[in-house]
Design a binder for these strands. Structure first.
Lengths: 114, 114
DNA sequence: AAATTAATTTTATTATTCTGGAAATATGGA
DNA sequence: TCCATATTTCCAGAATAATAAAATTAATTT
């Protein structure tokens, strides 16, 4: 993933309303929600929603598919995975010793001793 | 992780210079780079760097440790892991069927348990 | 073809963020 | 103490982003 695209993707998520939209679409899965359903669920004005959907779609974090009068929006999971890869790769590649630090999820269970 | 903290973390990365700083610190590991070393490597003015470091530090994506006159900045990997967890969790939790969609990186390597 | 419905684009206003020079703070050395 | 070094804070202008009402496009129904 190219760095300007990464910035775009991050910026598209770095906004309360858009993050909410994205999370709702993640929980929904591939079927997606129409713009109207999102307006209802999030109780925000149409133009505002449209503005935010555009940002997420331009960043390719969501996809849009038109079905008759409706436009269904769904999370694009592969783009999120590429983003995560970009953010976590090259850990300690400059040579430092940092074995447990780099691997996500693997070491992070709170210990009783500290 | 709380959603306003998530937005803050995403915003702190959604900027070319800050993303560059963060990635450099990721590649460096726990030892970190001093502000001066970062000014040199990134060729940006001190005040500009300081402004961006503050944003990343407030978001807890990097840590600062003072050592004599120097301040060493290092990536905070556990915060990134929490961020990634937040962004990827609850996939399809609203009931849709979408098994391979949620963890694309994982299904390439078949699980041992059924 | 008119009316209805779904959603977007345009637009103006407001709010926030970025940038870097000049001044300020803090530490260590002569 | 005085000086150099490391870094930050202050400030003001420039740039960018968010909001939502009004106008617009597009598809469907009657």
């Amino acid at each position: 993933m190219e760095s300007t695209k990464v910035v775009q993707a991050l910026a598209s998520l770095a906004q309360v309303t858009r993050l909410e939209i994205y999370r709702l679409l993640v929980s929904r899965g591939p079927e997606g929600f129409s713009a109207g359903e999102l307006v209802e669920r999030l109780t925000i004005p149409g133009p505002t929603l449209s503005f935010h959907l555009k940002a997420l779609a331009n960043a390719e974090l969501i996809t849009a598919r038109k079905e008759s009068r409706f436009i269904y929006y769904a999370a694009n999971f592969s783009q999120m995975n590429e983003l995560v890869t970009y953010l976590t790769q090259n850990c300690c590649s400059l040579g430092a010793v940092c074995d447990p630090v780099c691997s996500p999820g693997k070491y992070l269970r709170p210990k009783k001793s500290a």
